[in-house]
Design a protein around this nucleic acid. Sequence first.
DNA 1: GCTTGCAACTTTACAGTGTCAAGTTCGATG
DNA 2: CATCGAACTTGACACTGTAAAGTTGCAAGC
Lengths: 203, 203
Amino acid sequence: MTQTPTKPAHHHGDLRNALIKAGISLLDEGGIAALTLRKCAARAGVSHAAPAHHFDGLAGLKSAVAQEAFRLFSRHMMDAANAEGPSPRDRLRGICRGYVQFGLTHRALLETMFGLDAESLLRERIDPGDSDAYQILRDTCAPFVPPDTQKEVIEFQVWSLVHGYTMLFVSGRLGCLHPKNLGDGPFDQVMALLDRIGDTSSS
Amino acid sequence: MTQTPTKPAHHHGDLRNALIKAGISLLDEGGIAALTLRKCAARAGVSHAAPAHHFDGLAGLKSAVAQEAFRLFSRHMMDAANAEGPSPRDRLRGICRGYVQFGLTHRALLETMFGLDAESLLRERIDPGDSDAYQILRDTCAPFVPPDTQKEVIEFQVWSLVHGYTMLFVSGRLGCLHPKNLGDGPFDQVMALLDRIGDTSSS
DNA sequence: GCTTGCAACTTTACAGTGTCAAGTTCGATG
DNA sequence: CATCGAACTTGACACTGTAAAGTTGCAAGC
């Protein structure tokens, strides 16, 4: 045993990562309002001012949490793509499914990720276009690009569509559209449009 | 003159609307973090606890502000549609343009509108699908719907696409896509896909 | 081994926030 | 003119981010 167990330990060892991990838990459990410097500190077992030595205030913590969330997000979509099948079309469907699924499971995380302002993105050097997630999208979209079209056009159209659908769906905003009347499921609807994009060259 | 001008007036007359108006200004000026009960109260010239008699806490104020924002949003898109031209295709383009434009001008407003949770939507009876904005989208989309497709499918695909594009664009998230390399402008890209949707039946 | 320095963390303090309870004012209603 | 209640104020409390100053303990140099 240590000599005086009541005395506070002044060296955590891996506080930065512990705080980020605590932040993600808090977001998942209590929504966007639960992400608090003091709560993160408490959950990591340190005093309330300790995070200031690892992040630039609350904004800094949010950025770091978003950075880690993008990593989780990317891995989630990668798994979803791999689980779906080997063909590009199936992988693309998997990505769409993973996108929406991640949003439903971690909606506060998604809000933190895409709620960052441009400055925070720059400061933390977060560039979704350089992420694994977007690389998957890029690779999987490639076969769908018609020959007379810039591939970036398809990529950002697909991204916008899936992102918009996810955002609207996650926040319950598509209730007025009665998704249950729209076919076999939300993913088929997204895929229908993706197919339509790809069919431009074959018609 | 009144007898004692220093005495506080205990009846504002139209405090609820004044608070909502103050909230919208605060959002436009200082972003989402600037929307505060106390600041709204100060701007309306009342004490810090006065808003509690008109809204159910901060969440209630946010809902009311969002409700008004949806009204502004709807009118903005209506104007944009009318300014573009008489044909459905032009009107649809106008709506897309108005959507993005509103997002760029009032990004904090958009964040408040679409950041509401489902409970708040229900409590304030906010249903985007019943709004003028969505009615415009619905009417303007109608001519683009292929004969073998449910119209709701096209409507929600268009909405998802435009909403997603707006969200990504407004938060600077499309920077990695170098929009300047993508053609004549962002609106043309959205319209390209919209045209592609409509062309399904004609090919 | 001992000292020195410094990074990590704590403690204390302060302004701003939402929210509740109790008091005050004022207009309408009898 | 009295009264009653709605609209608003005042005061208080817990919680938040943030800054300043103090404390601890590891590690490098002698």
